[in-house]
Nucleic acid binder design. Sequence first.
DNA 1: AGCTTATGCCAACGCAGTTGACCTTACAGT
DNA 2: ACTGTAAGGTCAACTGCGTTGGCATAAGCT
Lengths: 235, 235
Amino acid sequence: MAKQVVPEAARQRRRRTHGGTVLSEEIIVRTALRVLREHGSTGLTARRLGAALGADPSTLYRYFAGMDDLARAIGDELMGRALDSWTSTGDWRADPRALGRAIHASYLAHPQAAVLTASRVTGRPREIAVDETILGILRGAGLPDPVAVGVYHAFIDQSLAFAALDAGSLALADEARTRDEEMWRSTYARLPAESHPNIAATAHLLARRMPHSAFPAALEMLLEHIDVQLSRVGA
Amino acid sequence: MAKQVVPEAARQRRRRTHGGTVLSEEIIVRTALRVLREHGSTGLTARRLGAALGADPSTLYRYFAGMDDLARAIGDELMGRALDSWTSTGDWRADPRALGRAIHASYLAHPQAAVLTASRVTGRPREIAVDETILGILRGAGLPDPVAVGVYHAFIDQSLAFAALDAGSLALADEARTRDEEMWRSTYARLPAESHPNIAATAHLLARRMPHSAFPAALEMLLEHIDVQLSRVGA
DNA sequence: AGCTTATGCCAACGCAGTTGACCTTACAGT
DNA sequence: ACTGTAAGGTCAACTGCGTTGGCATAAGCT
């Protein structure tokens, strides 16, 4: 019966695996992060993870409903780490900036895992905690509820979306990544000025800018937007 | 020899498949889009696509280096459709708004395909055409080159990132999607006000806002940012 | 008409997720 | 301390995946 998954909190009888280790959701997720880092975003397989744990692949189905369920648990872990690394200062401008960067950084610390998970909203406890925190900051700053909800929505989706996109390029194999970065110097820089005048005119700027993330800039635009909204309300 | 892929332009001898159809890159990509729509973002397999084409799966390797190569071709097709559906008006504010929405809409018209491809930058011709167009709009509006490059970067990444994220929720199976949308009414709306006061206070607004995309709002923030930058330059 | 070879098909490889049957051992109740 | 129960481990096998090498055939050139 691989369909019945016992929740972590209700577990009591933990047997040893063939390899001698004692399993738990936490250990499995941590090991999965290691396997992902070592074998890439498509390298997390039940057999490989089982081998890394010293356990049979089918054992995983005692803890997760399937590989998809495991992936969501990994995403929840990254979101939790982001929130843990963040502390409130009470400043409405510094707080969302730091939290956004914490989320982005937490996912980018595990690019291969981020590729797997950042594109989905899980609705798990730690994600909800982040939501509550952001809404609290925005409402505390004085934004009317409808505006706060709109900004919150853009904030969380933007953070996750950029995390997924930036992780994608970061997760490329070394060879592929440098080839990707070189593209801006080779392909784009060599476009003739007649057919692509704007790219040609800014090629040197593009080569410097494109290998980095646009997330910080987008985040500042969001904060700027809050500024404008607050001045309209008259806070 | 499945490694030698003949470029589409150089093809001459087209044989009929067992099913009677005559193949081409375009037909394969179009059929792939159909298979993706019918079977989901993970449902595009060589065997299934072969069956849909009335051809042997291995035949695909005469046209693409592998399933990954096919995926990039699909992404290029979506980007091309976005650019084709857009026409310049000369207005620096209306043009990027319409182009951003065209990109977003083109990907969301094929959510399952977007999930597969929107997270990667291809550097293919049609993507380059979009880049050149945006840079032209921004520089034409009067932005200094460094600012224009920064805004362009945020614009293209934001469009792709949101396309990937929004496509993700749209690509969920019907059953899973409605369950996802209901989450904001059930799970979030039922959170106790003591532990989650901000979510509780705005639950009705969240339920209305969250099922929709935050991309339009983020796009407006970007346009707003251009406004501010232009006023600083003094245009 | 005949030659070349691009382009199709077939069979098979290793690996994937997943499941059902089966042990085995940790704990609860006495 | 003893024992019954079932959680939680293993094993073997299923289907389907991407991919490849060998082979057949028909399209187009001369």
